[in-house]
Each structure stands twice: as C-alpha cells, then as structure tokens.
C-alpha cells in the first residue's frame, strides 16, 4: 500500500479548496459581463421618449442613420403588449394555479393528485417553443390570426405549473396545528383554507407568482407564433401585438434597428432582476 505523506495530503486539501473557490467565483463572471455589457451599451438609450414612442419603421430608421441622427422611437408598443398579455395571463393563472396547488396539498396521497403532480412537472419542463406551437394550433388557427389573446394563453400555460408548485409547497409546509386549530373552532374545510391557511401561505405564493412572472416575461419563442408583433401601440386583444422580448428579436434581425437592442434589453434585464431580487427578499422575510 502506498502511503502519501501528510504534507502532500494537506497540500492537496488546500489545492482542492482553492480550485473550488476559484471556479465558483468564475460563475459570477458571466453575470457581471452580461449586466455590464447591457448597461454599458444600453444606458444612454433610455430616455423618456424610449418608453413613450413606438418602434420606428425600417425606412425612418434608415433615414435617421443616413442623416447621422440617432434612431427615433422606442419600445412603447412592446411594453404595452407585454403588460396586456402578462396581465391577462396572471389574472387567469393565479386563481387557477392556487386552487390546483391547494388541491394537490390537500390530497397528496390520492392517485389522481399524484398524476396531476407528475403532469405539473411535465408541463413545467416542456420547452417554451412547444408551448408556442400548441397555442398556435389551439388559438391562432381557430381564430384565424395572431393575437394578444393567443400570446397570453401561451404565457398562461407557462405560468400555471410554476404557481401550482409554489402554492402546493407552501401549503404543505404550514404547520398542521394551524389547520387543526381552525377546524377545532368549527370551521368547515373551505373556510379554514380560505381564511386561515391561504392567508398564512400568502408570502410563499406571492413569491411564486413573482418568479413565474419573471420567468415568462422574457419568453420570446412562444410569442413569435402567437402574438407575432406589431409596430404600433395597440390595445385590442384580438389583433397581433408586440412584446419587449419580441422587439429585441426584431431589432436583432433588422440591421437598421440594431442600435435599439441594448436599450430594450436593459429595460427587460433590469425588470427581471428586480422581480427576482424582490421575490428573494419576500421569501427570506417570510421564512424568518
């Protein structure tokens, strides 16, 4: 048997720790690089008009570039579209998701609930591009056209499993004594859930909703086949509509509009990071 010297073993020990620290620290590099690049290239584009004006046409943008002026216009059409579609998706997904999550927490042992639980995992893991195809088949084809409704259906399907999971998990970690105390006072199951358990689970569920919103707000692929995009500010829900990530994709593909990429990305990135940090804060506060 070969025996290693103690000094050698201690050296390896230190080496391993050093390598772990260095490699772990390296994972922060992409985050800093991405935020840095987007901030650096995008901050001077953020202005009042960037948020209030719709995207310029390619012709306008070309003329401006030719004249050596900055490209006019902004991403207002995308912001309006994102807000409309996300709003509709949240309004439907939150109540249904919570009810479904409560069902799973209440009946964790039944066969049906186990199946539903597996399907929730399945839906959560389904690639977003497939949600896009599905919504195209379900909504765009029967409605004979792209629309904000279709876009919000896609976002709804993506948010649903996230809200179901966070509700289920939060309800399951509530102490059993809470439910017993409610029932001991003669409340029926429905009232104890609505008046005692759900309020107590509010923090966890709210965090879940925030994270779900931040997950889907940057989704591009499912919106490409459902909302399509539109260069005007539009409020009708049965017509094609734009969204911030869709605009980024458009800018990326249109050489005339490329200078608008970074402002739009910065807006999206800051919003998503803000949602994430808020969610984390609420979760921490709620856990303590």
């Amino acid at each position: 048997m070969q025996k290693k010297k103690l000094s050698q073993r201690l050296f390896i020990d230190r080496l391993v720790k050093g390598v772990v620290c260095v490699l772990a620290a390296l994972t922060a590099v992409p985050l800093i690089a991405i935020i840095g690049e987007v901030l650096w290239k995008g901050y001077d584009q953020l202005s009042w008009s960037f948020f209030t004006e719709p995207t310029p046409t390619a012709y306008k943008a070309m003329m401006a570039t030719a004249a050596g002026e900055p490209i006019p216009g902004g991403i207002a059409n995308g912001i309006v579209g994102t807000v409309i579609m996300l709003g509709m998706a949240v309004v439907i997904a939150v109540p249904i998701g919570i009810l479904c999550g409560v069902y799973l927490a209440e009946h964790s042992k039944s066969r049906f609930a186990k199946t539903v639980s597996y399907l929730t995992d399945l839906l959560q893991g389904t690639p977003s591009v497939i949600i896009g195809i599905i919504t195209y088949i379900w909504v765009v084809v029967p409605m004979k056209g792209y629309s904000a409704i279709a876009g919000s259906v896609a976002l709804f399907i993506m948010m649903l499993p996230l809200i179901v999971r966070s509700t289920e998990e939060t309800m399951k970690i509530l102490p059993a004594s809470l439910k017993e105390a409610g029932l001991a006072l003669g409340g029926n199951n429905a009232r104890v859930i609505l008046k005692v358990q759900l309020p107590a689970a509010f923090g966890g569920i709210f965090t879940g909703v925030l994270l779900a919103v931040s997950r889907v707000i940057g989704e591009t692929a499912p919106l490409m086949f459902t909302a399509l995009g539109c260069s005007m500010i539009r409020f009708s829900i049965d017509k094609p509509i734009s969204a911030v990530p869709l605009l980024i994709w458009e800018f990326f593909n249109d050489p005339n509009l490329q200078s608008l990429i970074w402002g739009a990305s910065l807006f999206l990135l800051l919003f998503v990071l803000f949602l994430n940090l808020t969610a984390k804060k609420i979760a921490n506060k709620w856990n303590s």
Partner: peptide
C-alpha cells in the same frame, strides 16, 4: 372548544 399544546393564534389575523 379545543386548546392545543402550543399556542396557535392565526398568524395573519
């Protein structure tokens, strides 16, 4: 009526 081992005031009320 029932009173439990640990006090169980409803936390959100």
């Amino acid at each position: 009526g029932m009173v439990f081992q640990r006090p169980t005031p409803f936390p959100t009320m």
